[in-house]
Simulated scan of single mutants.
Amino acid sequence: MGLLNDEASAAQDPYGALQKLQGAERGSLTDAVEAALREAIVTLALEPGMMIDKLAVCDRMGVSRFPVSSALARLAGAGLVEVLPQRGTRVMPIVIHDIRQHLFIRSALEVETVRGVAMHCSEGTLNALAANLEKQREAVACDLRHEFHLLDLGFHEILLDAIDLPRVKEIVAVSRSALDRARQLLASPERHVHTLEEHERIFAAIEDRDPEAAGHAMHSHLDEVVAELRRFASERPDLFEE
Rank of each mutant, 00 (worst) to 15 (best):
Y15L: 13
D98Y: 03
C142T: 13
A162T: 00
R100H: 09
I105T: 12
R176Q: 11
R106D: 10
L222D: 00
S220T: 13
L165A: 13
H192C: 09
R137T: 04
H216V: 05
A73F: 11
K135G: 02
R209N: 09
L144N: 11
S122W: 03
V63M: 10
R65Q: 09
Q12T: 11
E197N: 13
Q184P: 02
E82S: 08
S188A: 10
R87H: 09
A32S: 12
R230Q: 11
A17Q: 10
R181Y: 11
L80Y: 00
S69L: 12
S28C: 05
V117E: 13
E200N: 11
E112K: 13
L55E: 13
H194M: 08
V117C: 08
E200M: 14
K54Q: 12
R65E: 07
L109W: 03
V57H: 04
A187Q: 14
G27R: 11
I202G: 04
T89P: 06
V111N: 07
D180V: 06
E47P: 01
E134F: 06
A17T: 13
R176G: 05
P166T: 11
R60F: 06
Q184M: 13
K54S: 07
G215P: 00
E7P: 00
A139I: 09
A182P: 06
Q101E: 14
A11L: 12
R201D: 08
K135D: 09
D238P: 03
P211F: 05
R167H: 11
L109T: 06
M1C: 05
D53A: 07
E147L: 08
A217K: 07
I171W: 04
L80N: 00
A217M: 05
D13S: 11
A213I: 01
L179E: 06
D143W: 10
P48K: 01
C121E: 08
V172C: 14
A128S: 15
N5V: 08
V68C: 02
V91A: 05
V63L: 09
L153A: 10
L196P: 04
L129W: 07
A76P: 02
T195C: 05
L179M: 13
L29S: 14
V95N: 15
H216G: 02
G16Q: 15
F203L: 15
E235I: 10
V172W: 06
H221D: 04
V168T: 14
L4F: 03
D6P: 02
V81A: 02
A187K: 13
L229W: 03
A130I: 07
L126R: 15
N5P: 01
A213S: 07
D180K: 15
G77D: 11
K169N: 08
P85C: 02
E200T: 13
A10D: 07
P93A: 12
H149A: 14
A130C: 07
R87Y: 02
G27Y: 07
L29V: 14
G215K: 00
A108K: 11
D161Q: 14
R167G: 05
G154S: 15
P93T: 12
S69M: 06
H219Q: 14
A40Q: 03
A187L: 14
L159F: 00
D31C: 02
E197P: 06
S177D: 12
Q12P: 00
L72D: 03
G62H: 00
T113G: 01
V226W: 05
Q22Y: 10
H97C: 01
R65W: 03
